[in-house]
C-alpha cells in the first residue's frame, strides 16, 4: 500500500533515500507536465523540474505537515517557472521536439494503423492546435489551465499555489477558455457537424 505524502516526508526528514525517491517518482509527471505547459520546451522543463525538487528537498525542514504537499510542490514549480521566464524574458517559446527516444506528442495522436487519412490529419492537427493555442496564453493562464483541467485541482488550491485571490483564478480560467475558443476558431476548428 502506498505511503501517504506525510509519512514519506517524515521518513525523508530522517534521511531515508527511499522516501525521497518515492516523492520524486510520485510527482515527477505532474510537475513536469505543469512546467512543460508553462515554458513549452521539454529540456528546459526537465531542468526546472529538477530545480523544483531540489528546492523542495532543501526546504523540507520548513515544510509544515498540515499543508498539502502537492500544493506546496506545485507552488515551488510555478514560481520556478515564472522566475525562469522572467530571467529569459520570453513569453512564448517554440514547441520543441522531445528527445528521440521519448514519444513525440504529435506521434501519439495518430499512427500507421489508422485507416482514415482525414481522421489522422484531424486528430494530429487537433493535438497540435490545442498545444499551440495554449501557447498563445499568458504564462499564468497556462498554469491555471494545467492545474485546473489536467491536474484537476480545486479553485482554492490553485489560488494558494499561485498566490492569487479565488476570484482572480476563476477570471483567469474564464478568459483562458475564451482565448482558446477564439484561437481554435481562427484556425478553422469548429464543432463537428457545423
Amino acid at each position: 500500500m502506498a505511503k501517504s505524502d506525510q509519512k514519506l516526508i517524515a521518513a525523508a526528514k530522517r534521511g531515508s533515500e527511499d522516501a525521497y525517491r518515492a516523492l520524486v517518482e510520485r510527482y515527477q509527471q505532474p510537475i513536469l507536465g505543469l512546467l512543460l505547459r508553462v515554458v513549452r520546451n521539454h529540456a528546459w522543463a526537465e531542468d526546472l523540474a529538477q530545480e523544483t525538487f531540489i528546492k523542495a528537498f532543501r526546504a523540507l525542514d520548513s515544510y509544515q505537515l498540515e499543508r498539502k504537499f502537492s500544493s506546496w510542490l506545485f507552488k515551488i514549480a510555478h514560481n520556478t517557472a515564472i522566475d525562469a521566464l522572467r530571467r529569459r524574458r520570453l513569453d512564448t517559446v517554440p514547441l520543441e521536439k522531445p528527445d528521440a527516444d521519448a514519444p513525440d506528442l504529435l506521434d501519439c495522436l495518430s499512427g500507421p494503423e489508422v485507416d482514415s487519412p482525414e481522421t489522422v490529419l484531424r486528430g494530429r492537427d487537433l493535438g497540435v492546435a490545442m498545444v499551440e493555442a495554449i501557447g498563445e496564453l499568458r504564462p499564468d493562464y497556462r498554469s491555471v489551465v494545467e492545474l485546473r483541467f489536467v491536474q484537476g485541482l480545486a479553485y482554492e488550491e490553485i489560488a494558494e499555489i499561485m498566490d492569487l485571490p479565488l476570484g482572480t483564478v476563476k477570471t483567469h480560467l474564464h478568459r483562458a477558455r475564451k482565448i482558446l475558443v477564439r484561437v481554435l476558431s481562427e484556425r478553422g476548428w469548429e464543432p463537428m457537424g457545423d
Binding site: Y20, R21, Q29, Q50, F149
Partner: peptide, 21 residues
C-alpha cells in the same frame, strides 16, 4: 486536455534529482 499525451518523464530523472540534491 487530459486526452492529449502527457509529458514523458525521461529515464533516470529521479536518480539525477537525488544526486543533485
Amino acid at each position: 486536455l487530459r486526452s492529449l499525451p502527457s509529458a514523458s518523464v525521461p529515464a533516470g530523472f529521479a536518480d539525477r534529482v537525488l544526486r543533485a540534491s
